[in-house]
Amino acid sequence: MSKLELKMPKMGESITEGTIISWLLSEGDSFEEGEIILEVATDKVDNEVPAPASGTMKEIKFQAKDVVEVGKVIAILEVSNEKKSTSNLKSNTKEQDETKDKKPEKRKAATISNAGSSSQSFTTSNSNTFFSPLIIAVA
């Protein structure tokens, strides 16, 4: 078992702090991965924070109704299976990207033309591109 610092999650781009509504666990309680540990409120949204892994609540650093800055440690968890670190996730994503790059690409040329003027047209190499009616009308 290893200790894991549970930090106040970022719940939006402009959100800098959150208020702890309630803890659903007490110190010493055990929990499963994905189980809701606490509820947090901001001026824009209320959110439930799930457990990153299975383990035990060792220490709660802030109580209900405390306002906490995003990124501050709010609790210490003792977990049996830590979640993958960001560097592991990045390397796995990189490997998947490399695998995708090795597959042969099938590109279809899509020609979009203006209904009012058939002489104006443009092509793209990606057939999954969406063109809004405004873009088509301007082209």
Rank of each mutant, 00 (worst) to 15 (best):
S2F: 14
E5S: 07
L6D: 02
M8D: 03
M8Q: 03
P9G: 03
K10I: 00
K10L: 04
G12N: 09
G12M: 12
E13H: 07
I15P: 13
T16P: 01
T16F: 04
E17Y: 00
E17L: 00
I20T: 06
S22R: 14
W23E: 08
L24Q: 08
L24C: 03
S26R: 12
E27N: 12
E27I: 01
G28V: 14
S30K: 11
S30W: 01
F31M: 04
E32Q: 15
E32R: 05
E33K: 15
E33M: 11
G34H: 02
G34T: 02
E35K: 15
L38A: 05
V40T: 00
V40Q: 01
A41W: 01
A41C: 09
A41R: 06
A41F: 01
T42H: 07
T42D: 03
T42L: 10
D43V: 08
D43K: 06
K44C: 08
V45A: 09
D46L: 10
D46W: 02
D46V: 12
E48D: 11
V49A: 01
P52Y: 14
P52T: 08
G55Q: 04
G55W: 02
G55S: 06
T56L: 04
E59Y: 07
E59N: 09
E59K: 15
I60C: 04
Q63P: 00
A64V: 03
A64Y: 00
D66M: 04
V67H: 03
V68G: 08
V68R: 10
V68W: 07
E69H: 05
E69P: 13
K72G: 05
K72C: 06
K72Q: 12
K72L: 13
V73K: 06
A75T: 05
A75S: 07
I76L: 13
I76P: 01
I76A: 04
I76F: 14
I76S: 05
L77M: 05
V79N: 00
V79W: 00
V79M: 02
V79R: 00
S80N: 11
N81H: 14
N81P: 02
K83M: 07
K84M: 13
S85R: 08
S85M: 09
T86Y: 10
T86Q: 10
N88V: 08
S91K: 14
S91R: 13
E95K: 15
T99R: 15
K102G: 05
K103W: 07
P104F: 15
E105N: 09
K106A: 12
R107F: 15
R107T: 12
K108V: 15
K108E: 11
K108L: 15
A109C: 06
T111G: 06
S113T: 10
S113A: 07
S113M: 14
N114D: 11
N114Y: 09
A115L: 14
G116K: 12
S118T: 08
S119D: 11
Q120M: 10
Q120L: 14
F122H: 10
F122K: 11
F122M: 10
F122A: 03
F122Y: 12
T123L: 11
T124P: 01
T124E: 01
S125G: 09
S125C: 05
N126Y: 04
F130E: 08
F131N: 01
F131P: 01
P133L: 02
L134V: 09
I136S: 07
A137M: 08
V138G: 03
A139Q: 11
A139Y: 10
A139F: 14
